[in-house]
Amino acid sequence: MSAGPTPSQTVGPYLSIGLTWAEGPYVVAEDAPGAVWLHGRIRDGAGEPLPDALVETWQADPQGRFHTPGFRGFGRCGTDDDGRWAIRTVKPGPVEGQAPHLVVSVFARGLLHRVVTRLYFADEAEANGGDKVLATVPPERRHTLLAERDDEGYRFDIRLQGDDETVFFDL
């Protein structure tokens, strides 16, 4: 067998068998101080919701630290039949001078490789204005990376393709 990197393959339509955890959406407990739902829908290039996708998030704690004991930092939620996902967490602190953000992976049938994006918070306008990664994104597309405050927490819709296509990053 070759020693080069192993290629990616799609999760396929039956990803929920292998990648569902009951506790996956709970980065923090439901009643943790400051807990919010980050939630949204995932749609394809025809505007149809994806019922067979998975969102994973990774983030710093509210002080901007990673691997704090007791803080998993990782969230995972499959989409429901309407393409909706939701993760219970707290807003992260700034990391290395960047605006508060989570890094996000999206997996789905039809995605041969995960796509990677970042979730920023629309109510952090000042910090967002100084963020070195957002600065690399064309201004007219930056709004696709901003989660908007709502009654449950923050809404972050993901559009894989088409008008208002979410900005994805190449690591």
């Binding site: 025809a46 983030q59 710093a60 990391v95």
Partner: peptide
Amino acid sequence: LRAPRQQPILLAPSLSE
């Protein structure tokens, strides 16, 4: 209908990544 059509933006990995 699921593959993004825009080029991904190159991101220099930070501690988050």
